[in-house]
Nucleic acid binder design. Structure first.
Lengths: 152, 152
DNA sequence: TATTGTTATACTCTATAACTATA
DNA sequence: TATAGTTATAGAGTATAACAATA
């Protein structure tokens, strides 16, 4: 007698699966990014900057759904490697504006193909149509939890 | 000029979304489970045991897709709270067999409704049909990465 | 030799509290 | 008074390396 009881199957609940699959995906990303000496958080910053251009740290933290405090050491490391720059804001002297350097931009571009292949490996169990379906659903869910691209 | 360039939108890639949404889901679970003094890992163990019954630690680690070494302290805590028991295997003296206690089983049952509500809150952006679609896709993906229910 | 469980250790991610300098 | 960035710190998740007991 193993493998069934009279309770709902939370092990198959969407929330449970999202958390576990997120963990597995993060592991996969970590292994892949480690080859380029990047953490998941660092890569998230690079990708977000590549898409959104110049932003303040607060806005950047929102964009990648991490806490602004935890963003500080991540940016420190990226600045050390000259992949991003922190510069003072033109008018608001509280702010420090973050941008990709030439080198950072090049790295994101170079990783693009390999990252796509890595993703394909992880999704190998799903045929193309289902992958697109999954992607659309995840985009909608993500948009509901992360503030969209706004002004400034 | 912000919000577009000529590169593929990795920020919207499935792997990226899975990792970020997994993180957000884990945060949501952590906040919810914290009210019951449970970590995500502890809850994963309880749920897995509730479904699969008596298993060894190696098999248990596989079932919830965590490393067997990291399972040790998690089980220690659960044993301290008398939610699970570790007992010697009947014939193989290397093994220690893990089971839910009466108290652990009761707790999982008590959390069932609240956990379902928590999940609904997180998925509020998707209508029912899409939620089921998402759940099916995630189940298939999860099954491809985690060994299914086997003998013993 | 291989397997089960374990310890020690380190890095990443996340969260709470409190501080500074500006607005 | 509120906001942008920061520091210190702690807990949880994951990973590598190495070990004892048993098969």
């Amino acid at each position: 007698m193993s493998g069934s009881n009279d309770r709902p199957a939370f092990e198959r609940g969407t929330g449970f699966l999202l958390a576990r699959l997120g963990s597995l995906t993060a592991r996969s990303w970590t292994a892949f990014l480690g080859e380029h000496r990047l953490s998941q958080g660092q890569y998230a910053v690079l990708v977000a900057l590549d898409r959104h251009g110049v932003v303040g740290q607060r806005r950047l933290a929102e964009l990648i759904a991490v806490d602004a405090r935890n963003l500080v050491p991540v940016l420190d490391q990226l600045v050390d490697r000259r992949l991003v720059e922190r510069r003072p804001h033109d008018t608001d002297r509280r702010r420090r504006v973050v941008t990709l350097t030439e080198e950072g931009s090049t790295l994101v571009g170079a990783l693009a193909v390999a990252a796509a292949e890595e993703q394909d490996r992880f999704l190998h169990a799903l045929p193309e149509a289902e992958r697109e379906q999954l992607n659309r659903l995840l985009q909608r869910l993500y948009a509901a939890h992360v503030p969209a691209d706004g002004p400034e």
